[in-house]
Structures are given as structure tokens and as C-alpha cells.
Simulated scan of single mutants.
Amino acid sequence: MSSTLITVAPTGAETAKADLPQLPTTLEELVETAQACERAGAGLVHVHVRDPERDHAPTLDPVRLRDTVQALREATDLVVQLSTGGSVHDPLESRLTVLDAEPDSCSLTCGTVNFGDDVFLNPHGFMSDLYVQAQEKEVVPEFEIFELGHLAALARLIDAHGLPYGGKVHVDFVTGVPGAMPGTVPALVAGVQMLPPEVTSWSATGIGRAHLPVAAAALAMGGHLRVGMEDNVLFARGRPVQHNAELVSRAAELATTLQRPPMSTAQARELLGVKERRAR
């Protein structure tokens, strides 16, 4: 792999706006963030939507989801990916409605996982329904792996339903969540060795202090990168991230140093096999 897909996850569902005012939670902030991150080298934006009228709390409101997808699509050429995880407290039936907003891509977490003091519920029936719905709505899933056993669940989904829309299988290792797969190089290596044969590309992120070691290991092994304030709010010890573009720029510099520069948005679309939904 000669170039690198950089995904930016700018917001997430865990950090409160009151604790981190620079977190992009309004639609205007999210659009500005996406534009700056595209200029810095990002090819895909992974979106959690917040409700400014409810203390910037996570929301799966269908109108806000659709408005966000449309605004990002009009303002950037990034692949727009909606989280179907939302908050760990969102009911499964609400999470299944996310694809109605017609994103280019969606996250599909491949199993239930301990998530700090909570449990992120993803039973097989829900995953199967989401997989089939993504096929029917022609949305490309990104398979989120929080535990090594999730790779077996992914293989089971592919065996049951065939390849996802677009014919590509892109996996994202989310490492370092308290209670889940550690953010270490050996854990990432073990996961890569267990990838099902249908996988065509993979990326990785390390939560918090695991951010840089996991990024370096992913690049060295031919993987791609996910960065952003969803996963890491410190740029360095004692220095909070002020803008997601800082994290994208550092990832782009690291990738370029390793002779795997950031891929363009057109290359990202080809890598993932996304449907063309932009107005032309």
C-alpha cells in the first residue's frame, strides 16, 4: 500500500462540550472541522452528531443526521461515515435508523464490548440486521474491532450474507478502550494476523496515550490511520488538542515520512468502494 487513508473522528459521544469547549459539536463547527481536516490530509470523516439544544448531548435524531450528512457532502469531498454506535446508551432500534440519512459509509461494531464502566451492546442479531440493511441501502460498512473475538464475528457475518456493498471489507481496530483490547503493538499485530481473508484494507487507532505507538505500528504493517478528538484529546503531555486538524496534520507528516503519504478523497472512495452520492 503506497498511500494512507486518514480517517478523522472529530467528536465522539463521550467527551462533554463543557469539559472541552473546542470539541466540534454544532453543525457549523463540524463543517469547519471537516474542511480543515480535508486540507490537512483526511480522506474520511467519522461522525457522531450532538444536539446543541440539549447541552451538546449525543443524538440520533434523524433530521440532524440527514442535515449533517448533506452539509458535509456539500462542503467537502470527504467520505462521510455515520456512527451507528451513537452513545452506548442508545437503543438498538434507534441505531438501525441511522442509514436512513444516506451516508457514504457507516460503522458496524462486530460484537458487544466492555466500554469503561458501561457495556456497548452489539448482539449478533443486531449486527446481522445492520449488515443486511447496509447492503440494501448501498452503504459501505466499516467494521469496528474492539476485541480479537470480533474478527470471528465478522467472518460469521460475511459467511452468512456475502460481501458488503461495494465488494470491499474495511476493518478498523479501536484499541485502548478501558475494558477492551489494549492499545499495544502486540495486540494490534495479533489482530492483523487474525483478519479474515476477505478483508481488503484495515486501519487502527489508539485511545489516549496509545495514539502514537499504534499509529506507527499500523503504518509499518501496511494499515491506515484513524485520529481525532473522539479518541485522543491531548496532543502531548499537558497540551490539549485545540483542533482536530492538528492530529490529522501529525498523522499526515508521519505517513509521509514513512513514504506512505495521505491518499486523496478520490483514492479513499476507490479503496472503500463507496457509492457516488455527491451532486455533480
Rank of each mutant, 00 (worst) to 15 (best):
A217P: 02
V139H: 00
L65P: 01
W202Q: 07
V185A: 01
F235L: 15
D172W: 04
G167M: 08
A236I: 01
R278W: 02
R237L: 14
E230K: 04
T4E: 05
R226N: 08
S3F: 12
A180Y: 05
L163T: 12
V63W: 09
I6L: 06
V47A: 03
R278V: 03
C106D: 03
T200S: 13
N244I: 05
A101Q: 01
Q70I: 13
Q267V: 07
F235W: 11
S201Q: 04
V169W: 09
G176V: 00
P196A: 12
L195Q: 05
T26Y: 03
A13C: 11
L254G: 06
A279W: 04
F173K: 07
A180D: 07
R66D: 14
M1S: 14
W202F: 15
P58L: 04
A101V: 03
G228N: 01
L151V: 05
T15M: 03
R73E: 02
L5Y: 08
H224Q: 13
L254Q: 08
G206C: 12
V174L: 11
T256E: 14
V140Y: 00
T76M: 06
L121A: 14
T33L: 02
Q133S: 15
P262L: 07
S249Q: 13
V8A: 11
G222F: 09
A160Q: 15
P141V: 01
H48P: 10
R277T: 00
F173H: 04
E14C: 06
A218S: 10
R260P: 08
A245R: 04
T175D: 09
V45C: 07
S107H: 04
L27Y: 04
L154C: 01
S249M: 08
R250V: 14
H224T: 10
C110Q: 11
A217R: 05
F173A: 06
E28K: 15
L225D: 05
G179S: 04
T200K: 03
P141M: 03
R39S: 13
S203Y: 07
S249A: 14
R66V: 11
Q133L: 15
M1G: 14
A36H: 13
P186A: 09
A160H: 12
D55W: 12
H56F: 07
E246F: 05
I6Y: 05
Q242Y: 10
D51F: 07
A75T: 10
H48G: 12
T33R: 01
R280D: 11
G183N: 02
V113Q: 06
A220K: 14
V119D: 04
A16T: 14
T175F: 12
G191K: 06
P58D: 02
A40N: 12
G166Q: 02
H48I: 12
G238D: 08
G41D: 10
G222K: 08
E246C: 08
V214R: 05
H170C: 08
L60G: 01
V233W: 11
T175G: 13
E29H: 12
D51Q: 09
H46F: 06
P178T: 08
Q193E: 15
S203I: 07
